[in-house]
Design a protein around this nucleic acid. Structure first.
Lengths: 255, 255
DNA sequence: CACTGTACCGTACGACGTACGGAATAGGCA
DNA sequence: TGCCTATTCCGTACGTCGTACGGTACAGTG
């Protein structure tokens, strides 16, 4: 099951946590744990078992401490998830931007695509407020630099990046969520379809949905055989970037 | 908090539920409830309080029955959510397609945009398997018909629709999730920023993220004043459709 | 050496999804 | 008419969750 909100607590406390601004206390016992250790254990758990299986108790068990000890370092689960998001955001590679804007955006999209593959639980995080941590900001800055200096204004830059990333997220969702479910349920998508198809045939009048039936059967067949698993990602990215190209050319023509 | 999976149970049972294929039993007491009543109560609850606040107990209370009575009609919460998704999918308007493909896709996108506004909890549903119910299929068929006959093959049609809908979802997420959080937490985004900004200034070195800082401050300012709230939606849609146009023109030129 | 701020965490509470089994009901059939 | 049986309804209970609260052990500070 699952899912989870982030960023519901006191903003000041959350920011202090994300940016790790708290001087080590002089009094008291030495901390046996750290925010980083907790966050990294939580990420490992979410990677292997999904966000739905992530509980404070399991994180604590993995670290060999009592559950409530975590709350010495982290105000609540929502803030822990904020930290997880910020931490994995640092993982994307950021080579110096070279080449044209299109190659740059392709690289940015690919980095995000890979990030979702490493951490599919990112797709299940319900972000109620933006996570403003060092990792997220650095990633955003890098991604914006890919399209800086093209004559787009700031709102346009933001908009362009959003379309690209929305596409990546959608494509990742389509591919990864079913994979995660296969792991959880022990039932592959093929098996699921095999179980569903006969019933569906009896229950649904295909002629009432002619186009859906046609497209559904062809794509089901082709994706199983002819197309690589990231075809949806690559295809959509081309469309989006073609659209961005129209804008960029208009702006550079008027400059 | 929250979130939720759907479609984790027995496919045959789920399909029977979605398509309402069960003959009314001849023996036994008259059912005092119905799947439709339960689904509609659940939708109302999710609309007003969010998916995180949706529990079997609350649905039952709203209907004035015992919690476990729901399980006579619905195998589990996941299947209930499947039904909710399928039901609201019937709500989108579907006028006969007229005009060019671009106007059609704009209309499709707008319908989905409106749907997310009516039911923001749709953004929080973690769909592990496709929901194959009459509502979802009918909607998909209609949307595919918007781009049928343009010379695109089936996989391309699927891909084009996916990019458009991924953009709508992303834009809706950006706009609606913060609105939902404002309702839940009683703290507006402005207040949240007001609380965060001073801390952020102290903690973050703006010069380390020059482009992010510039774009962040300009967009924050402009979205508060100069732009309509659906600017992100409209802007991204233009980009995506410009990209689709390139493909459509290529296909119709080669025909 | 006492004080005090800190780390650690056992216990407990309220909410959740739902398994289980019993009671009440009403049509089908003898 | 009356029993049988498929159904509906649902109270109770279990395991899991996030986390509030308060106690205890610890280690620098005055």
């Amino acid at each position: 099951m699952a899912a989870v909100t982030s960023g519901s607590g006191d903003p000041v406390r959350t920011l202090a946590l994300l940016w790790r601004t708290k001087d080590a206390p002089s009094r008291g016992p030495k901390p046996g744990l750290s925010v980083d250790a907790i966050v990294s254990a939580a990420i490992q758990l979410a990677d292997t078992e999904g966000l739905g299986a992530l509980s404070m108790r399991k994180v604590a068990d993995k670290l060999g401490v009592g559950t409530m000890s975590l709350y010495t370092y982290v105000p609540a689960k929502a803030e822990l998830i904020d930290c997880m998001v910020d931490t994995v955001s640092t993982e994307t590679e950021r080579p110096e931007h070279t080449g044209g804007w299109r190659a740059r955006l392709e690289q940015v999209a690919r980095q995000n695509w890979d990030l979702y593959h490493r951490h599919p639980w990112l797709l299940q995080v319900v972000m109620s407020r933006p996570v403003i941590g060092p990792g997220v900001i650095a990633k955003w800055d890098y991604e914006l630099r890919a399209i800086d200096g093209l004559g787009l204004d700031e709102v346009e830059m933001d908009g362009v990046l959003n379309v690209v990333l929305a596409h990546v997220e959608g494509a990742a969702r389509a591919k990864l969520q079913t994979e995660q479910t296969e792991r959880d349920s022990g039932m592959t998508l093929d098996q699921w379809w095999a179980a569903s198809a006969p019933v569906l045939e009896r229950v649904m009048d295909e002629s009432a949905f002619p186009v859906a039936s046609r497209v559904g059967s062809v794509t089901g067949e082709k994706y199983a055989s002819a197309y690589p698993p990231d075809h949806g990602f690559a295809f959509g990215l081309e469309r989006v970037l073609d659209g961005v190209a129209v804008l960029v050319e208009a702006r550079s023509a008027s400059a």
